[in-house]
Computed example of a mutant assay.
Amino acid sequence: MARILAVDDDQAILTLLGRILVKDGHDLTALDNPARVESLDLGRFDLVLLDVMMPGMDGFELCRRIRERVDAPIVFLTAKSAEEDAVYGLGLGADDYVRKPFGAAELRAKVAAHLRRERRERKCALSFGDVRLDVAARRAFAGEQEVLLTKTEFEVCEFLARHPGQVFSRAQIREAVLGWDAECDEATISVHVANARAKWRDVGAEVIETVWGVGYKWTA
């Protein structure tokens, strides 16, 4: 059982989420008002589902406000079809997105994939000079300065760092990090890599290299 927070101004969507997720044994907190989210104990949730198009405060703004308080994957529920909207959401710290309308099987697969990732056992640290990934705590450092990566950005870095110097395609990274059944496209991986690389550069570290026409490799 997982504790899931869903925020959507459409009560019909919340009802649908309840039928699917509660039936699967999850503890669902469903809110139709995004303004109520910031008063919650966000650290207790295992997964957060956010609608994008909401009055007053949209999902993008809500994600920006709560990302540092949420130690769980954030997945957007979006009716927007433009790729730049999904890219923008990932840039704010979201981990994934599901396009509306979605079916029960699709939602279950997406939720299950993220929860599996959260429950994987992690026991070690990866060090490369001043660059360090604390795998157990999911924290990244350049010297004494912490690099604030999202969960997916960290897992992309972790995967590459476990195979330093080896080049992986976007498809290989997607399968290793998100699972073979992930429904996001390979462009999503490019966004996560770009975001992670920018954060490392902000602290003076170059850790991921693009191998044009092939993919990416860890070079720290």
Rank of each mutant, 00 (worst) to 15 (best):
D58R: 02
V75E: 07
F45C: 04
D51K: 13
P34W: 02
L21I: 09
D51E: 03
D96M: 14
D24P: 00
A79P: 08
L16P: 09
R64T: 15
L92G: 11
V98D: 05
S81Q: 13
R99W: 06
L28W: 07
C63P: 03
D58T: 06
V75K: 11
I74L: 07
A94F: 10
D41Y: 04
Y97I: 00
L115T: 06
I13F: 13
A105F: 08
D24V: 02
D71F: 09
V70G: 02
G25N: 01
A79E: 02
E84K: 11
R67G: 00
P34G: 02
R19E: 14
K100L: 14
E61A: 13
R67A: 05
R67I: 03
L47W: 13
G89T: 03
F45Q: 03
R65I: 08
L31N: 12
V98H: 12
D46M: 07
L31Y: 04
T78A: 05
G89P: 15
R116Y: 07
A82T: 15
G18A: 04
H26F: 04
I13G: 14
V48K: 01
V22I: 14
L115S: 05
D24E: 14
M54L: 04
C63K: 05
V48Q: 06
E61H: 10
D46C: 05
A112V: 09
G103N: 11
H26T: 04
D32L: 02
H114Q: 12
R99S: 14
L40R: 04
L90Q: 06
R36W: 00
R36K: 12
V37W: 14
G25D: 01
R69M: 08
L16A: 09
A109C: 11
V22L: 08
L28S: 01
V48T: 11
D95S: 13
R108K: 15
K100Q: 07
R99F: 08
R67C: 03
P73A: 04
K110D: 10
C63H: 05
Y88G: 00
P34L: 01
D27G: 03
K80S: 06
E83P: 04
K100Y: 07
E83N: 00
G103K: 15
D41A: 06
A72Y: 05
E38D: 13
V48N: 06
D58Q: 10
L90C: 12
R44I: 15
F60H: 15
A112I: 02
R65M: 06
D96W: 15
Y97M: 11
A112Q: 14
R64F: 11
R69W: 10
E83L: 09
P101C: 08
F60E: 10
L28G: 00
L92N: 02
D85M: 12
D46Q: 10
A94N: 06
P73Q: 10
D51N: 05
T15N: 10
P101F: 13
L50G: 08
R65S: 05
I66A: 07
G91W: 06
L40A: 02
V98G: 08
G103L: 03
L42R: 08
D71P: 01
A109L: 14
G93W: 08
A35V: 08
D85T: 13
P73Y: 05
E106S: 11
A79T: 07
A104N: 06
M54S: 07
E83A: 08
T29A: 07
I20S: 06
D32W: 11
R36I: 01
L90S: 08
G59I: 05
